[in-house]
């Protein structure tokens, strides 16, 4: 999953979350493949960011899943508290989901 400014979005990318307009109306559901005409409409309606599936754009500051998981282990090294370990598991889950291609969830 990546949340990107509209200018980064290309036709063929799939939505990970609903696209919402300036008035909070839903313009497009989850898992929809975006088309050129949809993107044009989004621009007219003032949509600034869209969350898409997978990681289609290489951002200079973005880490790979392996790097993320390695750093997560480092941050949590020596942690034994039950709640904190739960936070770590949740983060792992969120990171894996974020980096998955998203092909399975429609």
């Amino acid at each position: 999953m990546q949340r990107l400014p509209l200018s980064y979005i290309r036709p063929g990318m799939k939505t990970f979350e609903e696209v919402v307009d300036a008035q909070g109306r839903v313009l497009c559901g989850k898992g929809v493949e975006l088309t050129e005409s949809m993107l044009q409409k989004f621009q007219e309606l003032g949509v600034s960011y869209i969350t898409v599936e997978g990681t289609p754009v290489k951002l200079p500051w973005e880490k790979t899943l392996e790097e993320e998981l390695e750093l997560l282990e480092k941050r949590f090294s020596g942690v034994k508290d039950e709640f904190l370990l739960h936070v770590k598991e949740v983060l792992k889950e969120v990171l894996m989901m974020k980096h998955s291609s998203g092909a399975k969830n429609g």
Partner: peptide, 25 residues
Amino acid sequence: DLLVHARGYGETTYVGLPPFDPKAL
């Protein structure tokens, strides 16, 4: 503060996590 440290966004003097008081929950 804890959740953002745990996520690893930005940097502070903490390499790991700051002490957490479960009473907050």
